[in-house]
């Protein structure tokens, strides 16, 4: 399984993401710069990491979503390649119209950086097979704009389709997200966006490895 990590000015979680993909997949991902118009051949998983692309100017992820590399990512996604966006990566996927809804300023108006509990609400996706439905994971969050919003019709549709893959477990919603939504997948099931950072909980040095299953699923290296 070949993976790629997208790099844009202001993203700062790319090295964590590269480390997670390398350690779990056994092979370093290729890196793709924002001006590139093609994703290298043979890539089966494209990851957009977190950070503050373009200083969060205009709206988080808004400018990054209009960069040339996003057209290349869109066409790969249409061809069935898996795409994962974490934190700012999630914001970018929403701004690019690749996922439904929007992320707004946290209800508290404060930046939140802490550990939350994450419930796996759909364990039948290519990103969550290593988990069980209803499993509660520990996971760090660090964001200012993670307050998920969708209009009533869209919210009902994504709930009905099982597109809400992760929810903040009861009492740990850090940002006011509608229905405690923490991660959303597209209808086809190959584009996932999530606010929490699974790449920051993959080994003993992190204090736990609950995030490993996501990469093991996406990279197709789930231990037997």
């Amino acid at each position: 399984m070949k993976s790629a990590v997208v790099q844009l000015p202001g993203l700062n979680r790319d090295r964590d993401m590269i480390a997670a993909l390398t350690k779990i997949g056994g092979k370093a991902p290729v890196t793709v710069w924002q001006t590139e118009t093609e994703i290298p051949a043979g890539v089966d998983l494209i990851v957009i990491p977190g950070g503050f692309s373009y200083g969060d100017y205009l709206r988080c992820g808004a400018i990054a979503a209009r960069m040339p590399v996003m057209q290349a990512i869109k066409s790969k996604a249409e061809a069935g390649v898996k795409v994962l966006g974490v934190c700012n990566g999630f914001q970018i996927l929403l701004e690019a119209g690749m996922l439904p809804g929007a992320l707004m300023r946290n209800a508290s108006l404060k930046f939140v950086c802490k550990e939350i509990r994450l419930e796996v609400t759909n364990a039948e996706t290519d990103f969550t097979r290593a988990y069980e439905k209803g499993q509660i994971l520990r996971c760090p969050v660090a964001h200012h704009d993670g307050n998920f919003f969708a209009d009533a019709e869209t919210a009902e549709r994504i709930e009905g389709n099982g597109q809400v893959v992760f929810r903040y477990a009861e009492g740990t919603n850090p940002n006011g997200s509608l229905n405690d939504v923490a991660g959303v997948i597209n209808e086809r099931g190959n584009v996932l966006g999530m606010m929490p950072h699974p790449e920051n909980l993959i080994e003993a040095a992190h204090g736990g490895s609950d995030g490993r299953g996501l990469f093991a699923s996406a990279l197709d290296v789930i231990a037997a």
Binding site: L58, A62, R66, L94, G101, M104, F149, A150, D151
Partner: peptide
Amino acid sequence: EKLLANTVI
């Protein structure tokens, strides 16, 4: 439509 507004919200 393309940049200045996010028409979702």
